[in-house]
Every structure is written in structure tokens, then in C-alpha cells.
């Protein structure tokens, strides 16, 4: 028995290199860095230049800040910027409110929780364009089932997508419908990670359901809150699919957002202007989302 095993074969070899290589080689980052660098970073930096040009993809002429000036002078472009902000703020706020409400409901002692969670979550997985088309049909001013339903209650529903001052809000409503499931499951994950002890202690102290929500659920599900706010805010700023599927930015330019403006200018061949729109979107996100991200994360660290 001993003879088979104890004959050493693994004699220390001659040292081969001066410094030993790390078991975690830097070149592991390389493939990802190449794809990301070429297809994301380079265009991003290039956009800073091309946004200052009149551009046909074959040649570009430098025109300074003209494209940006257009964004803040042309009414339909201003409309796009304003709508983007409205859309992001509104969808974000509503997703937080409804998402948190649904999460509390779906973590309480009600029956069929699993089924309800699935039902609420499923729209997240459906094709956004499909959702847009379906809701466009449902929001048809005369034939749509929404106004038909309101009609049964004796209410004359508005032209959800045909009324210029309403269209962007209707799209925002559909976005909330589509995305609230994600907010809900994130809040649920946050809430179920709160130790039950807190609730038991609070119950012993005689806290009401509302007080438990305000003093325990809300502060302790803060990481979930941070995730939901940032996720839905950025998603709101970048939204394109729903607007495009439902209104194409119409009526007129009433429901245009930055992303749809970028696409329209691209289609029209105004590549410089389209790219400037992209840069405006970067700036919006950087100016609103980054500080938000830092603020929310810092506060959390200090708790």
C-alpha cells in the first residue's frame, strides 16, 4: 500500500519566472472591454463631436452649438425635452406608490399571493410594442373598451391618445401598468428580507398597521426603494417603445419624448441634430440620475 503512493514524483521544478503571474489575469477583462469599448464607448465619445456638426454619415461640417440651440428654440424639440422629464417623473412616482402598495398587499396574509404576484409581474415580460398596440386599441376614443366601460358608468371618456394635452399622460399610464410589476417584485424582495422580529417587537409595543409600515417597512426597505427609483427613473428618461407604438409622438409633436425625437431626426436624415438629441439625453440622465444615485446611496451608508 505504501509503495504505490509514497514514491514522490512531483519534484519542485526550476523557477520559471521572476514574478509569479496572478491567478486572476487582467486579460480576462479584455474581450468584454473590446466589445463594450468599440460599440458603446467610442460612439458615445464620437457623439460629442458629431452633435456639433451637420452630418450625412459620409461627411460632416462643423456648425458649433447650432444643433443644441435648435433644441431649445424649436417648440417641437422643447416639447420633447419637457415631455421626457414629465414622463420620467410621473412614471417613477406612480411605480413607487403602486409598487409599494402592491408589495405590502402581496406580502400580507392574503390568499393566492403567488398567483397575484405572477399576474402583476407578467406584463414586464410581454413585448412592449405589443402592449402599446393593445392599449392603443383599448384607448380608441369611440370604440375602445376603456371608454366603453366608462360609458357604462355614464362617463364620457376623453380621447386618450388623440387629445394633445392628454396623450403623453396616457402613454405614461400604460408604462406604469407595464412596469409596476417589476417595482412590486423588487419591493417584495426588500420587504421579505426585513427580519420578522422588528414587526413582532412593534406589535408588542402596540404599533398600528400604519405605524408599522411607516416606521419599519418604509425605512428598512430602503435599498429596494433606491433600486426602484433609479431603475424606473432612468427607464422613463430613455423610454421609446411605448411612445412609438402608441402615438408616434403625436398628435403633432404633443407626445414626443427625446428618444422619439432622436429617431425622427435620424429618419429625416438630420444625423447631427439626432446626435445632439442623444447628447441632451446623456446630460439629462447625468444631471438627474447620477446625483440621485449618489444621494440615495450615501444616505443609506450613513444609516
Amino acid at each position: 500500500m505504501t509503495t504505490t503512493v509514497s514514491t514522490p514524483i512531483a519534484v519542485p521544478a526550476k523557477p520559471r519566472h521572476r514574478r509569479r503571474s496572478s491567478p486572476y489575469p487582467t486579460w480576462f477583462l479584455l474581450p468584454a472591454a473590446i466589445v463594450y469599448g468599440i460599440l458603446f464607448l467610442i460612439p458615445t465619445f464620437a457623439s460629442l463631436y458629431f452633435s456639433l456638426t451637420r452630418w450625412t454619415l459620409f461627411n460632416s461640417s462643423f456648425i458649433g452649438l447650432d444643433n443644441f440651440v435648435a433644441f431649445f428654440e424649436e417648440p417641437f424639440l422643447i416639447q420633447g425635452v419637457v415631455n421626457t422629464i414629465i414622463f420620467a417623473l410621473l412614471t417613477c412616482a406612480l411605480k413607487v406608490v403602486f409598487g409599494l402598495g402592491l408589495a405590502v398587499l402581496l406580502t400580507s396574509q392574503i390568499h393566492a399571493r403567488g398567483l397575484l404576484r405572477s399576474v402583476v409581474f407578467f406584463p414586464v415580460l410581454v413585448s412592449t410594442v405589443g402592449v402599446g398596440i393593445a392599449f392603443t386599441a383599448m384607448m380608441h376614443p369611440t370604440d375602445g373598451i376603456i371608454n366603453a366601460g366608462l360609458g357604462l358608468l355614464g362617463i364620457k371618456g376623453p380621447g386618450w391618445l388623440t387629445n394633445p394635452s392628454l396623450a403623453i399622460y396616457s402613454v405614461a399610464f400604460v408604462e406604469v401598468w407595464r412596469g409596476v410589476g417589476l417595482a412590486t417584485v423588487i419591493f417584495i424582495a426588500g420587504i421579505v428580507s426585513i427580519p420578522q422580529d422588528y414587526y413582532e417587537a412593534a406589535r408588542i409595543d402596540g404599533a398600528t398597521g400604519w405605524e408599522r409600515f411607516v416606521y419599519i417597512t418604509l425605512p428598512l426597505s430602503r435599498p429596494a426603494m433606491v433600486t426602484v427609483v433609479i431603475l424606473s427613473f432612468i427607464h422613463g428618461l430613455r423610454n421609446f417603445e411605448l411612445v412609438w407604438a402608441m402615438t408616434r409622438g403625436g398628435p403633432g409633436f404633443a407626445s414626443d419624448v427625446l428618444a422619439s425625437v432622436i429617431y425622427k431626426q435620424y429618419q429625416a436624415g438630420f444625423y447631427g441634430l439626432s446626435t445632439a438629441g442623444n447628447v441632451v439625453l446623456f446630460v439629462l440622465i447625468a444631471a438627474m440620475a447620477v446625483p440621485l444615485y449618489l444621494y440615495l446611496n450615501r444616505k443609506e451608508g450613513h444609516q
Binding site: 457623439s47 454619415l57 433609479i230 428618444a259 435620424y266 446623456f282 440622465i285
Partner: peptide
Amino acid sequence: MMPPAVVPTI
């Protein structure tokens, strides 16, 4: 977080 710059990408 950042949206891609589409036209330069094209």
C-alpha cells in the same frame, strides 16, 4: 444608465 449614441453607432 446611459443610453447608447445611436447614429454614431450606426
